[in-house]
């Protein structure tokens, strides 16, 4: 097992290298550079632009640019953002934290709702409520995140619900007590987390229902019933514990898909996460910031997949990894 994990981690290194190569050249394919806008500005002298070009390393050949970027990043230097003029590491840390916070909240919502509903639906299969839940899960699966976010924002404004509609903090944030600060952030978190959470709930609910149905038809459940256990005990002690096992692996995969899914939601709700940062970075051709975002997102995705595989291995002793 330990060897397997070590080998999986070693594979990540060339993978990240290939990802960086691909993303760097895609980024360089886009026409123009960050400096083009500045060139239009008559207040900025030609010399200054040339100096900035040299500072950012944009005057060199693409391959040299790539390798100097690679050299820096291997030494832990992510470069400097063109637009913000501060080290990329400073920006990306808080953005990554925000996205992880949002993802965690979304997961909490989706697991909190999906597991009980999944159990109920499986136990009361084809009942009225089960059908209603399946209809809802179809709707949840089909509604694009950004459209759902727009609908929520629309109803907040229309019905004067006292919730913020944009960003992560209110204007008065700096003057708040720590407790108020937490509440303020939670209020801002609500809409994006609900949007992402319901998107996850829909599929999770169906999977939980399926797993539970599989288990309920097993012999040992019949045995448990036959020996006269209470139905509650049969469901929660025998069926649920076995049905939840495979769900653990879904957790890892969810972690990776949340990242992509979060981007549009962040953009619509103004949540200052990694996805929103990527959009502005790509748009303004802020090369090193976009590269860092790309690498960070990929790293998270790889870690998510790795975690899923390891959890699967730990959870299911039938699976042997060499």
């Amino acid at each position: 097992m330990r060897d397997y994990i070590i080998r999986r981690i070693l594979v990540v290194i060339p993978l990240l290298f290939a990802i960086s190569l691909l993303s760097f050249f895609i980024m360089q394919l886009s026409p123009g550079s960050y400096l083009d806008d500045l060139r239009m500005n008559p207040d900025i002298s030609e010399e200054l632009i040339r100096k900035m070009e040299a500072d950012f390393g944009l005057d060199q050949n693409i391959f040299i640019q790539y390798f100097s970027w690679l050299k820096e990043i291997l030494q832990g230097n992510l470069g400097e953002s063109f637009t913000y003029r501060i080290p990329v590491a400073q920006i990306i840390g808080s953005r990554l934290f925000n996205t992880l916070l949002l993802s965690a909240a979304a997961m909490l919502i989706s697991w909190g709702i999906a597991i009980p509903i999944g159990i109920y639906s499986a136990v009361h299969r084809y009942s009225f409520l089960d059908n209603i839940f399946s209809v809802f899960s179809f709707i949840g699966l089909s509604i694009p995140n950004f459209f759902f976010a727009l609908l929520l924002l629309f109803s907040i404004v229309r019905f004067d619900i006292p919730l913020p509609i944009n960003g992560m903090t209110s204007i008065m944030y700096d003057y708040m007590s720590p407790m108020e600060k937490v509440i303020d952030i939670l209020k801002h978190l609500l809409v994006p987390a609900v949007v992402l959470g319901t998107a996850g709930t829909a599929s999770l609910m169906r999977q939980m229902r399926g797993q539970m149905l599989d288990v309920i038809n097993k012999d040992y459940i019949r045995t448990a019933r036959a020996k006269g256990l209470k139905e509650k005990k049969v469901i929660y002690k025998h069926a649920f514990r076995n049905a939840i096992n495979p769900m653990i692996t879904i957790f890892g995969f969810q972690l990776s898909s949340l990242f992509s899914g979060a981007a549009l939601t962040e953009i619509v709700t103004g949540w200052p996460g990694l996805g929103r940062m990527m959009l502005t970075a790509v748009r303004s051709k802020d090369l090193y910031l976009a590269m860092a975002g790309m690498m960070m997102g990929s790293l998270m995705l790889i870690i998510g997949n790795l975690a899923a595989d390891i959890l699967l291995a730990l959870n299911d002793s039938r699976i042997k990894y060499q």
Partner: peptide, 9 residues
């Protein structure tokens, strides 16, 4: 291994 939306972006 690249988040699909980032790649599309």
């Amino acid at each position: 291994s690249i988040p699909s939306f980032y790649l599309l972006l």
